[in-house]
Simulated scan of single mutants.
Amino acid sequence: MASFVLERHVPAPPERVFDASLDVGLHLASQSTRGERVVGGPAHGMLKEGDRVTWSARHFGLRLRMTSLVFDVDRPHRFRDRQTAGPFGAFLHTHEFLADGDGTRMRDTIEFRSPLGPLGRLVDAAVMRRHLIAVISERNDAISAHFA
């Protein structure tokens, strides 16, 4: 399985950054360039343990859907979400929030696998890793800007 880790300092306490990371409206705003919208599950407010949400967004010129389950919620330290239906063979996102001086070190660990075996591994190495880093970085830009 392919993976990467992104870290970002956010100038706010972990509790506030944690809550912002589960806010559906902030997530949608962070992905507006992809036309992301909720097509199933909670469409506003803060996601919580056990919530399933289906997102629809444009990636690579295609409108794709991905259903994610929010689990392992330990406010304000971490939560995880994983794809339960969608384009990936597997997708797991671990969100961690660590007190860091005057704010929070937000750490995203993404583990993913495209379908189609060896061909999918080539796609992951050549294209998907870079694309997902851009997607998560845009999301993190929006969270940081929320506290600026």
Rank of each mutant, 00 (worst) to 15 (best):
T33K: 14
T84W: 06
R16K: 12
A85E: 10
F97Q: 05
E96H: 10
R121P: 08
A99H: 09
H9Y: 07
I143V: 15
F147V: 04
H27P: 00
E7W: 02
E96W: 02
E138V: 00
E7G: 01
L116C: 10
R113W: 07
L28R: 07
L26N: 09
G41M: 03
H146C: 10
S114P: 11
R16G: 04
I133L: 04
S32G: 06
P76C: 05
A145F: 06
H44D: 15
D108L: 12
A20K: 10
S144A: 14
M106R: 13
H93P: 06
H9T: 01
F60S: 11
L6C: 02
G120R: 03
R107Y: 09
A142G: 07
H95F: 10
W55R: 07
F112Y: 15
H77V: 01
D100Y: 14
R34A: 13
E15R: 07
T67D: 01
G120S: 01
Q31E: 11
F18N: 05
H131Q: 13
V10F: 07
L132N: 00
T33Y: 14
R105W: 12
V127M: 13
T94L: 11
T67M: 03
F18W: 06
V5M: 03
V70D: 02
S144P: 01
L47I: 01
S114A: 14
E111P: 08
L119G: 11
D81N: 10
P14V: 00
G50V: 03
L98I: 08
L26D: 09
L132M: 08
T109Y: 13
A134P: 03
D141R: 14
S114I: 04
P11V: 00
G25N: 14
R75K: 12
R63P: 05
R37V: 08
S144M: 03
P14T: 00
D19M: 05
A2M: 09
A126L: 15
F112M: 11
D72N: 11
S56L: 07
P76L: 04
